[in-house]
């Protein structure tokens, strides 16, 4: 990876295991271990887990949360939070359905869904930057407002059926399907493509490094010439556009534009994934790779709970619990690092 070529150039002769560790990041190793343990646990309890079709389903299910997680990583690294992404996805779902069904354009449907999401992201950024409303409060407000807009945009507030097959392919299509191999979900490939681009942007571009800088210390970033207002517009627009794309996926997947169902509560899962992936609320830390690992972990857990017939109510409790665990782990890591730092500076 480009951002790591600094260390790569110095140590080119090392075994592949180390190379993988470096790509994943040492701090994400615990996630990989947790995932492996979880898989072993679930597979030992039910024979239906390690079935190609089930694994394919996990891949298909995590695409929506994964897209939101990518956007949320950027937002959280910058030191903010975007709670409105689930509602944005709802608006985008309805908008894309309207274009596909009533206007008859698949490309237009995808494009307009993403555009709607981006515009709502711009509105978020404007509220945060110009009205100086704290990002959490601002997006909590738009969480409600955008959900309302989704119902208002849908004719009579009802879901819109989408019959176009080529559109449905985006949500539930598979490539390389043959015999017993169920194929790779198109939605998952879409997520992988977005995540790879986002990883590159965050690690190797001026924009990405500026996001880390402003999250780490906004005053220092400002005095180093970074325009914080402009950055917030970019960041929330990206988050909105990705939420829009997630909404389009929901429509394509369920063959209907849904104002609420399928997108409600997604913000919680995305935020959980980002924190579980190693980001901290204060900003300046977090990676796309970490978030993606956490998304896989969460999707596996959710799948496992379904296979083991754990009732939904318990699953809701588990989801809330996980968010707290994720943040608590982050706090514990911070405290440990601070202690180490204090020791170093005192002793040094």
């Amino acid at each position: 990876m480009t951002n790591m070529s600094q260390t790569t150039t110095q140590r080119s002769t090392e075994n592949p295991l180390k190379a993988i560790t470096r790509f994943v990041g040492a701090e994400n190793l615990s996630l990989v271990i947790a995932l492996v343990l979880l898989v072993i646990l679930i597979a030992s309890q039910t024979p239906f887990f390690f079935v190609p079709r089930n694994l394919m389903n996990i891949g298909m299910n995590l695409a929506v949360v994964g897209l939101l997680g990518v956007g949320m990583t950027i937002v959280i690294v910058s030191g903010a939070l975007d709670i409105s992404v689930g509602s944005i996805a709802g608006v985008a779902s309805v908008v894309s359905a309207i274009f596909v069904t009533y206007v008859g354009t698949v490309t237009g449907g995808v494009f307009m869904g993403v555009l709607a999401g981006a515009l709502l992201g711009v509105v978020n950024a404007a509220i945060i930057s110009y009205l100086r409303v704290n990002a959490v409060v601002a997006t909590l407000a738009t969480l409600s407002a955008y959900r309302g807009i989704a119902f208002l945009v849908a004719p009579e507030g009802r879901p819109i059926g989408v019959l176009d097959q080529s559109f449905a392919y985006i949500g539930s299509g598979r490539v390389l399907e043959s015999g017993s191999f169920p194929g790779i979900p198109v939605a998952l490939l879409l997520l992988v493509a977005v995540a790879v681009v986002a990883h590159f942007v965050m690690s190797s571009t001026v924009f990405g490094r500026a996001v880390y800088s402003m999250g780490g210390n906004p005053a220092a970033a400002r005095l180093a010439g970074i325009n914080l207002t402009r950055m917030k517009f970019y960041i929330f627009t990206i988050s909105g556009a990705l939420a829009g794309l997630a909404g389009v996926l929901v429509t394509a997947r369920t063959s209907s534009g849904q104002p609420a169902s399928g997108t409600q509560g997604l913000e919680l899962e995305a935020i959980t994934a980002v924190f579980l992936g190693g980001a901290i609320l204060a900003g300046g830390k977090g990676t796309i790779v970490g978030t993606m690992l956490a998304v896989v972990l969460l999707a596996t857990l959710s799948n496992g709970m379904n296979l083991l017939n754990i009732p939904t109510f318990y699953q809701l409790v588990a989801k809330g619990f996980l968010l707290i665990v994720a943040v608590a782990i982050g706090q514990w890591r911070m405290a440990r690092a601070e202690r180490a730092q204090a020791r170093a500076s005192l002793a040094g």
Binding site: T2, Q6, S204, T205, V206, F207, R209, A210, Y212, S213, G216, N217, A219, A220, A221, L223, A224, G225, I226, G284, K285
Partner: peptide
């Protein structure tokens, strides 16, 4: 408070005022 981003690296802190000159098409 205003000078450094303590959680980021020496390289990033030392180069952040000139990111744009150390990049091509926005890529560092």
């Amino acid at each position: 408070g205003e000078g450094l981003i303590l959680v980021r690296s020496v390289m990033e802190n030392a180069s952040m005022a000139v990111f744009s000159t150390l990049s091509r098409f926005g890529i560092l």
